[in-house]
């Protein structure tokens, strides 16, 4: 699944609608379909870290995304960015090709009204610090849309729709391009080990051998002889799995 962390429901609404996410009742406001799980964290680093931790420890998440709005003294309102550096010390690893612009971001504890930076939000660092406890950096992304040039404002739903809707198609494409870790299926080794009651170290040797066969696209032998004693059986099995 793809996990999404939004600070406010307002930021999440366009995504909830577009991806047809349904609210499920848990401790947090979580919205889901079969591919996406979106959680509303509330404002600030700590809230973001808590929600991120909750999502990553309760769901099977392969890639996680912090999606939200950010202030900027220089970028145009409505521009969308993928973040490549947070607070000068954290580095999401953007290893896929994508169509967004990239930028660094500063994560502040309070609302900022000026300063030397490109983008500012209040969640990114908390989100990232929590996420790296579960995933490698190339499965952690931050997508930010510029909502203001650092003047105080209260966005309404209409404003958020106008800000986010134009990007939804690209965001969806981006989601599709995210990769999952490949897993190899070693169930055959498990089955054989169980059937012939192999020891732990025998099982590990057999697993290595099955892996060798899989990596070489070799046909796996059928092991189906009568069980005798462990030592003999193991020898026979390994004979079938010749290198």
């Amino acid at each position: 699944m793809i996990g999404i962390i939004c600070a406010y429901l307002k930021e999440a609404k366009p995504l909830i609608k577009y991806f047809d996410l349904k609210k499920i009742n848990e401790k947090f406001s979580i919205y889901e379909n079969e591919k996406i799980s979106l959680i509303i964290s509330g404002q600030g680093k700590l809230n973001s870290a808590i929600a991120t931790t909750y999502l990553l420890s309760t769901k099977k998440i392969s890639n996680i995304i912090n999606f939200g709005i950010a202030g900027s003294p220089e970028f145009k309102i409505g521009e969308i960015f993928l973040i490549n550096k947070i607070n000068n010390k954290f580095f999401p690893d953007i290893l896929i090709s994508h169509t967004f612009r990239e930028s660094e971001i500063i994560c502040a504890d309070e609302v900022k009204i000026g300063g030397e930076f490109k983008l500012v939000d209040m969640e990114s660092e908390g989100f990232f610090k929590a996420a790296i406890k579960f995933l490698k950096a190339h499965h952690i992304y931050l997508i930010k849309i510029v909502s203001d040039n650092l003047e105080c404002f209260k966005p309404d739903d209409k404003f958020m729709d106008e800000l986010i809707n134009p990007h939804l198609e690209n965001i969806e494409k981006f989601f599709y391009s995210l990769k999952k870790e490949k897993k190899t299926n070693l169930s055959l080794a498990e089955e054989i080990s169980k059937k012939y009651n192999l020891s732990f170290s025998q099982k590990m040797q057999l697993k290595d051998r099955v892996m060798f066969y899989l990596l070489n696209n070799r046909k796996l032998p059928k092991i189906d002889f009568e069980k005798t004693n462990r030592k003999n059986d193991f020898r026979r099995i390994m004979d079938e799995f010749k290198i």
């Binding site: 580095f91 690893d93 290893l95 790296i132 995933l135 490698k136 950096a137 190339h138």
Partner: peptide, 8 residues
């Protein structure tokens, strides 16, 4: 940082 993947 430990949170990277050499392979990826």
């Amino acid at each position: 940082p430990y949170y990277q993947s050499f392979r990826a």
